[in-house]
Design a protein around this nucleic acid. Structure first.
Lengths: 339, 339
DNA sequence: CTGAAAGCGCTTACAG
DNA sequence: CTGAAAGCGCTTACAG
């Protein structure tokens, strides 16, 4: 590896001059003549010089790096978010340092330590919806500029950009009620996460607003995560079909595929016998047969606002805490029909 | 930020001692008494000391970091690969530095520069199947230890771990031919990538082995990428249905969903009228109705071997170049039937 | 316009 | 067992 000193020696100039000519360093006062700039550039190119980023960052502390902690399982779901974040930060000359974790508190803690060890003060957390959801936010206290995607489960104030889970869920339930559904089953989880809480609340509020009674069993809490295996789906259906549901609100595409398949085995058709709404949009929801009515969370907009906020705060000495909810929209498919 | 020097001063010992007691540094000869170790640890904890990783890496050059360059669009497809890589490297005390790109030569080049600038010599590339596929591998020459997932398009020898696209594709075509299909259409792309090439070759070889003639149009080359929008699917079907195909080999789940939907609009059923095989497995392929026969590339095994090889090579001064093909397997669904 | 010097926060080889 | 010193490859403030 060629160093800056070697370039300086080969070009017969000082290291300050090379720093200025090649790396934009050299402080405010260092000037280099046009002649030397050319010679330095030529020498560097000839030697194949590459600046050492570790040394650069150690020396001047300038930080244009944003840490990202993301769960590898979210990757599909958050695909739009990540690629938008990547695009926006990259085009503004910023870099991402990505910590990929999977459902592991220890891994998240380790990556947090790494980011702090690299003196990275800005971080976006997309991995905090677990059974241990409330243990994650405290890990992010040491950062000057932390931002969560989705509202974190914590007392302390953090900036976040979150889907407005309540509003979209309310809209979905309202939509079903207006189509005369009277027995909607919502496949919640037994996790105590923010989204699950407010969805249950929206379920309740919408029913109340429309004067429709429901039994507690219509909010299904038996499952830990997605109902995305045939076995889990069988159990789920055995549990809830006795309630004679006319609509189901479920998670992702896989769950819904299994659901449709398993309903068919029981001679139940979607939407004729049971309507279905998906809680998360996924690419391909409109390609299915029937196409699925889904809650589009507007992830691209979430990512856009997240990047804007974190970059703004990265400039401030005392970042301001903002809580931003992004409205989603119900994408109407063929999976719901009037009763 | 508390530094090592401050801990040393507060504990009344030398920096070497702190380095040894806290960070496992201090060289071979530095010894610290039990008494001092305790005091140093206590002091560090009290002050909230965090080692600066930049300084550590700059000073001792020890590298336990593996770079990864991955396309954000691959994320779904390569989800299994990435999470397996993450798991295996993380549990061996290694760290990943992930560069997330999207279909952009410039971004890949920039991330390569970054990795080299951080003095990272080991890198896994999962982003080299583009229209500019052959421009990517040269970027990775400067690394001591580069490894590609999927065979790269290049003359130079690189290590890679790749799906055995040829074998699995041959198996799929053979399967269809044995089920008496005689007009198989393969939705290739107009990209000149390794996988596309050998698939076309396998298509040819299998037909020849079974003495089945085919016309060139059965290898559809009009598309740039996946046929994953309704418009592209309409055009594709308009183009190939006049050939009276009895089977289609297509890309991912979205493409296949659109295909089934658009075939139905034309009163063609899967598999009764047309059989379908998917070229890439995706979670949910077996949940669909009908479930889809897919080529499972065995990504987890690919990831496992990739990590093993790159970690092995990271130890060697002169890494050995290995070319590893992983056999996949045909997962039989309901989307193919005997003609 | 130019370069010598001190510093970033860690290392390790070396001398006690 | 212990610490002073030189070094990693860059910075920038400063003095010419």
């Amino acid at each position: 590896m060629i160093t800056l000193s070697e370039v300086a020696e080969a070009a017969g100039v000082s290291r300050s001059a090379v720093s200025k000519a090649l790396l934009g360093g050299g402080g405010k006062t260092t000037k280099v003549s046009e002649k030397n700039i050319i010679r330095i550039r030529e020498t560097a190119a000839r030697l194949g010089y590459r600046p050492n980023l570790l040394a650069q960052r150690l020396a001047n502390k300038r930080q244009d790096i944003i840490g990202v902690i993301i769960d590898s399982q979210c990757c599909g779901l958050y695909n739009n978010i990540m690629s938008t974040i990547e695009h926006l930060t990259f085009s503004s000359g910023c870099r991402l340092q990505v910590g990929l974790v999977h459902d592991s508190y220890d891994a998240i803690k380790k990556y947090v330590d790494d980011l702090l060890g690299y003196n990275i003060q800005s971080v976006i957390c997309l991995a905090h919806y677990y059974s241990f959801a409330e243990q994650i936010p405290p890990l992010f206290k040491p950062f000057k500029n932390a931002l969560f995607i989705s509202k974190p489960m914590t007392e302390k104030k953090f900036s976040f950009v979150s889907p407005d889970y309540y509003a979209i869920f309310y809209e979905a339930v309202e939509y079903l009620l207006k189509l005369n559904h009277r027995r909607i089953v919502f496949a919640k989880t037994n996790y105590d996460t923010y989204d699950a809480r407010v969805r249950a609340q929206a379920f309740h509020d919408a029913h109340r607003a429309y004067g429709v009674e429901y039994v507690e069993e219509q909010i299904y809490k038996e499952n830990a995560g997605e109902i995305d295996t045939p076995e889990l789906m069988d159990r789920f259906l055995s549990d809830i079909l006795p309630l004679k549901p006319d609509a189901l609100i479920l998670g992702n595409g896989i769950a819904i595929n299994w659901c449709i398949r398993k309903l068919r085995e029981r001679n139940l058709r979607v939407p004729e016998d049971i309507s279905i709404i998906g809680m998360d949009d996924w690419s391909g929801s409109q390609a299915m047969t029937p196409s699925i009515t889904v809650m589009n969370n507007n992830y691209r907009e979430i990512a856009r606002q997240a990047v804007q906020l974190i970059q703004e705060n990265a400039k401030n000495e005392t970042p301001q805490i903002k809580e931003i909810f992004i409205r989603g929209q119900l994408v109407l498919g063929e999976s719901c029909t009037r009763k």
